[in-house]
Simulated scan of single mutants.
Amino acid sequence: MFSHVMLGASDLDRSKQFYDAFLGALGAKPGFTDPKGRTFWRHAGNTFAITRPINGEPATFGNGSTLGFAAASTEQADAAHAAGIAAGGTACEDPPGWRGDAATGQLYLAYLRDPAGNKVCVLHRPPKPAA
């Protein structure tokens, strides 16, 4: 359904440092910056990017918005969360851990905000048991 996700950032260097660490823990290579100043990360067939808003206004985060990133394991989710915090992110919501119930299923979630205030989540969905 999606071709890419792009978020606004006013301090591109700080945001690149954050996402290089955060996405690196999920297996992505460091982002590359194009001549227009946009930085892109490509991994596992997906594209994520940051840019200054083209209207010249300061970047703002979407209140109520969350961008989710997949993790292969709880350890990888924890590593991405820790890398993001170490690179200037801020913990938010509950600490990383399992959430859900029998109706929705169990998910391992780790939330944080990037340096621009965008809320991101690392999600690990355990494999379904064999029937």
Rank of each mutant, 00 (worst) to 15 (best):
H81G: 02
L112M: 15
T90N: 11
P30H: 07
G27D: 13
F48H: 07
L112T: 03
A103V: 14
L12Q: 05
L23R: 02
D13H: 05
S73T: 13
P35M: 10
L7F: 04
N46A: 15
G100A: 10
A91M: 08
P35W: 04
G89D: 02
T51Y: 00
F69I: 05
L107I: 10
W98D: 15
T39C: 11
K36E: 15
G37N: 12
D11A: 06
T104G: 14
M1V: 12
T74Y: 03
L26G: 09
H4I: 04
G31A: 10
P115V: 02
L67F: 11
S73H: 08
D11N: 13
G117W: 01
I54N: 12
G8I: 01
P95G: 11
A102R: 14
V5Y: 00
L109P: 02
G100V: 08
A86E: 14
A103L: 10
F69G: 02
A110L: 07
K16C: 10
T74I: 08
H4C: 06
A77W: 01
M6N: 14
G68R: 00
F48R: 03
P95S: 11
T60I: 13
G117S: 05
A103E: 15
S65Y: 06
A9F: 01
G89T: 01
D101G: 14
A25L: 04
S10L: 03
N63W: 00
L109W: 01
D114P: 04
I54E: 14
T39F: 03
N118V: 04
A82W: 01
T60P: 01
R99H: 14
L107H: 13
A82C: 05
P53E: 06
G45I: 09
K16T: 14
A9P: 01
P30S: 10
G31C: 07
P30G: 08
C92H: 11
C92M: 13
M6K: 11
N63I: 09
Y111E: 09
E57D: 12
L67A: 09
R113H: 09
A86I: 02
A21M: 05
F18C: 05
T60L: 07
T51W: 07
S10I: 01
A9L: 02
A49H: 06
A25T: 07
R14L: 11
G89W: 02
A44N: 14
A28Y: 03
L107D: 10
G24N: 10
Y108L: 09
G24W: 02
A9H: 01
D94M: 12
I50Y: 00
G97E: 12
A49M: 09
D114L: 05
A72T: 14
L26I: 11
R52Y: 00
A80K: 02
P53Q: 06
E57Y: 00
A91E: 15
E75I: 00
R14P: 03
